[in-house]
């Protein structure tokens, strides 16, 4: 065997990963080959030096952020579960109806009567009812909006996230909602909340003030996650006016290198 072939066993020897036979073979070769011995010794020196490599302590935030994330996740999961239980319960009811046919007939008659009545009144006073309906809808809408704005101020991150998710149900986001979301996007301490806010705002990108706000937000984000997510959104929206802000961001010296590459790529794709 040539020295080169023995060399291939060096890393395994250092790592204690050689089979007994390989180990013996190598060690036997080393007794007679000064060059290999020296080579292995210098590699071993480096290997031992690597023991002194230390990883800096993570900040205390890591633990706290995990707890927040877990709680948020559980809350979101619980929300999903309760709505699916609701459907199951309703299906259960239907099943019971099926077993009570007489009752089902009664129900059918009641429904038909209601239907006739509705048609009758609808024809008679349609426009008035429509008006009431519109009023009611707008009241519900307002209520949702108030609730959402209140939730965004909540100290718990999972509640704030719930607030952000309500915006999906608000059909016509007005300035107040948009301002609240933009302020959450720029100032919320929790990165998960900021990310879902970015999602919500992307859906509202039809509003010029949302686009403008997103572009302005580029230079205000310091988390690499957010910076990279915003770059994705800008590319998706083909927002050319963001190029200037991205160039501004590139001037920051402590910018994450991965993000730097991504932003450069985004700029080239936008121009």
């Amino acid at each position: 065997m040539k020295c080169e072939q023995y060399e291939e066993l060096f890393a395994g020897w250092l790592n204690n990963e050689l089979k007994p036979a390989e180990k013996e073979m190598l060690e036997q070769h080393l007794t007679g080959c000064a060059a290999c011995k020296a080579e292995l010794a210098s590699m071993q020196q480096l290997w031992v030096l690597m023991d002194e490599v230390e990883v800096p302590e993570p900040s205390a935030n890591m633990q706290a952020d995990f707890r927040t994330m877990l709680n948020d996740y559980k809350a979101a999961e619980a929300g999903k579960k309760s709505s699916s239980i609701g459907i199951l319960e309703q299906l259960g009811w239907l099943w019971q109806w099926k077993q009570r046919w007489p009752l089902a007939y009664t129900l059918a008659i009641v429904l038909i009567s209601f239907g006739c009545g509705y048609l009758f009144f609808n024809l008679a006073g349609g426009s008035k009812q429509d008006k009431q309906m519109v009023e009611l809808t707008s009241q519900v809408h307002e209520l949702k909006q108030t609730m959402m704005l209140a939730l965004l101020e909540n100290p718990s991150a999972s509640e704030r996230m719930r607030g952000v998710s309500y915006t999906g149900e608000i059909k016509h986001a007005d300035k107040e909602v948009i301002d609240a979301l933009l302020s959450t996007l720029n100032n919320d301490p929790n990165v998960n909340v900021r990310l879902s806010t970015l999602d919500a705002l992307t859906r509202l990108a039809g509003h010029p003030e949302v686009r403008q706000g997103l572009v302005q937000s580029i230079t205000q984000q310091d988390s690499p996650l957010m910076q990279s997510a915003i770059a994705d959104v800008m590319l998706k929206l083909q927002e050319k006016s963001s190029v200037k802000s991205f160039r501004e961001l590139l001037k920051q010296k402590d910018l994450d290198h991965g993000v730097r590459d991504k932003i450069k790529e985004t700029i080239t794709q936008l121009i």
Partner: peptide, 25 residues
């Protein structure tokens, strides 16, 4: 496992904050 995972991510990025973010992810 948060520490070993953080250690791995730190060696792969050499960025403390990025590694913390990645642990969450």
């Amino acid at each position: 496992y948060n520490r070993p995972l953080y250690g791995f991510l730190f060696h792969m990025t050499y960025q403390r904050e990025t590694s913390e973010d990645l642990v969450q992810q």
